[in-house]
Amino acid sequence: MRIGQQVPYFSWPGAPESIAPTLGRIARDSEDAGLSSLWVMDHFFQIEMIGPPELDMLEGYATLAFLAGQTSRISLGTLVTGVTYRHPGLLVKTVTTLDVLSGGRALLGIGAAWNEQEHRGLGVPFPPMKERFERLEETLQIALQMWAGDETAYAGQHYQLERPLNVPQSISRPHPPIMLGGSGEKKTLRMVAQYADACNIFDLGPEGVRAKYDVLAAHCERLGRPYEDITKTVITQLSLSERGGEERERGGPAMTVAQAVDKLGALAEIGTDVAIVGMADNNDPAVYPLLAEVVRQVEPL
């Protein structure tokens, strides 16, 4: 099992001046601890599950470009881009640029979008759910076509591209890995099986996550896609301390390394390949030696 980290919160003491140095240190500490990937949310307002919309929020791809300059090995992606935020041709160009300038470390995390508040606040159209999923499927088709170097005109219901040129091409071949976020059984997991390289499921507990994997496996079988080709990822919360038990302002009580390994091990047992953790105390440098030990212990699982 591999571990990634999502950074969803930037309102550290001294923000906004403190944001860049703190985030840069988090990125370097994450890489040094052996994490395989680093993720930011693709939102324009802070989301209600974390705090009020007035909290600091950075634009996702500019942030990933900054993180690419702070690191040299760790993979970089959004968890996840709302399909409504950017025209698909420009999105593919943006992710390709990140991939080229980072030396092949870009990941495309994408989903159907949900945060109506920020859409309306910034004047971004927010179509009904059915249309958002239609746009998501067309965007996945466009991404795969552009990364394949196919310049044939694309004529979809929602998007029309006369010449989907993409030069330079991505360094990652055949393309940057595509991760689809969400656990909807009829549409999202079917699109994972049809188009994506990875799924991302909320931590519903081992049995809840296993049930989603079973649905994905059924879609794969019906579409003729090897289930083993799909990287299974789960997003979960993790707080670490030497002794465990301390209450965190965000993220619940802290765990010891052993407790964290047990928690992640239960997800590994059901076939999870990557646990992407949100850490309430990720701006504390003392956490990263503990996280490095968790990485070491879960790697064989």
Rank of each mutant, 00 (worst) to 15 (best):
residue 113 A to I: 04
residue 151 E to M: 09
residue 140 L to Y: 03
residue 25 R to C: 06
residue 37 S to P: 10
residue 270 I to H: 02
residue 78 T to M: 12
residue 96 T to A: 12
residue 149 G to D: 10
residue 232 K to Q: 14
residue 174 P to C: 10
residue 81 T to A: 14
residue 267 L to M: 11
residue 276 I to L: 12
residue 93 K to W: 02
residue 285 P to W: 08
residue 276 I to H: 00
residue 220 C to I: 12
residue 260 A to H: 05
residue 129 M to P: 09
residue 115 N to F: 14
residue 227 Y to D: 02
residue 223 L to Q: 10
residue 20 A to V: 15
residue 218 A to R: 15
residue 261 V to R: 00
residue 195 Y to C: 05
residue 176 P to L: 04
residue 30 S to G: 14
residue 135 R to A: 02
residue 106 A to N: 05
residue 191 M to K: 07
residue 254 A to W: 00
residue 294 V to M: 05
residue 115 N to S: 10
residue 167 V to F: 14
residue 151 E to F: 06
residue 257 V to R: 03
residue 43 H to E: 07
residue 85 Y to M: 11
residue 235 I to Q: 08
residue 6 Q to L: 13
residue 223 L to K: 07
residue 158 H to E: 04
residue 231 T to A: 10
residue 79 L to T: 01
residue 207 E to G: 09
residue 51 G to T: 03
residue 50 I to A: 08
residue 86 R to A: 07
residue 18 S to A: 15
residue 168 P to E: 13
residue 189 L to S: 00
residue 272 T to D: 01
residue 53 P to H: 03
residue 98 L to T: 07
residue 203 D to I: 02
residue 107 L to R: 04
residue 193 A to E: 02
residue 154 Y to E: 05
residue 123 G to R: 07
residue 90 L to A: 13
residue 192 V to L: 02
residue 15 A to I: 05
residue 6 Q to R: 05
residue 28 R to M: 06
residue 63 T to K: 06
residue 144 L to T: 04
residue 87 H to Y: 12
residue 141 Q to K: 15
residue 40 V to Y: 05
residue 254 A to L: 02
residue 4 G to P: 02
residue 169 Q to R: 12
residue 118 E to F: 01
residue 206 P to L: 04
residue 89 G to F: 01
residue 244 G to R: 03
residue 207 E to T: 14
residue 43 H to I: 03
residue 248 R to D: 13
residue 170 S to I: 02
residue 109 G to R: 01
residue 253 P to Q: 13
residue 224 G to V: 11
residue 132 R to P: 03
residue 120 R to N: 13
residue 284 D to M: 09
residue 216 L to R: 04
residue 292 A to T: 08
residue 280 A to H: 09
residue 35 L to N: 02
residue 27 A to T: 03
residue 232 K to P: 00
residue 154 Y to Q: 09
residue 272 T to A: 06
residue 67 L to H: 05
residue 152 T to K: 15
residue 136 L to D: 02
residue 193 A to S: 11
residue 242 E to A: 15
residue 65 A to E: 06
residue 134 E to A: 10
residue 178 I to R: 02
residue 159 Y to W: 12
residue 53 P to L: 08
residue 88 P to I: 02
residue 219 H to F: 08
residue 195 Y to R: 03
residue 29 D to M: 05
residue 59 E to K: 04
residue 96 T to Q: 00
residue 253 P to F: 06
residue 145 Q to S: 06
residue 133 F to D: 00
residue 66 F to E: 08
residue 71 T to G: 07
residue 26 I to F: 07
residue 293 E to L: 08
residue 167 V to Q: 12
residue 58 L to C: 13
residue 233 T to K: 06
residue 85 Y to D: 07
residue 301 L to Y: 00
residue 162 E to V: 11
residue 137 E to F: 10
residue 86 R to K: 12
residue 148 A to V: 01
residue 167 V to M: 08
residue 45 F to C: 11
residue 7 V to T: 09
residue 299 E to S: 12
residue 7 V to N: 05
residue 294 V to F: 04
residue 193 A to F: 09
residue 155 A to P: 01
residue 143 A to L: 07
residue 94 T to V: 14
residue 69 G to R: 00
residue 167 V to L: 11
residue 95 V to N: 04
residue 163 R to F: 10
residue 267 L to I: 08
residue 65 A to Y: 04
residue 48 E to R: 14
residue 89 G to W: 01
residue 182 G to M: 06
residue 249 E to A: 13
residue 22 T to V: 13
residue 183 S to Y: 06
residue 140 L to Q: 05
residue 77 G to M: 03
residue 2 R to L: 03
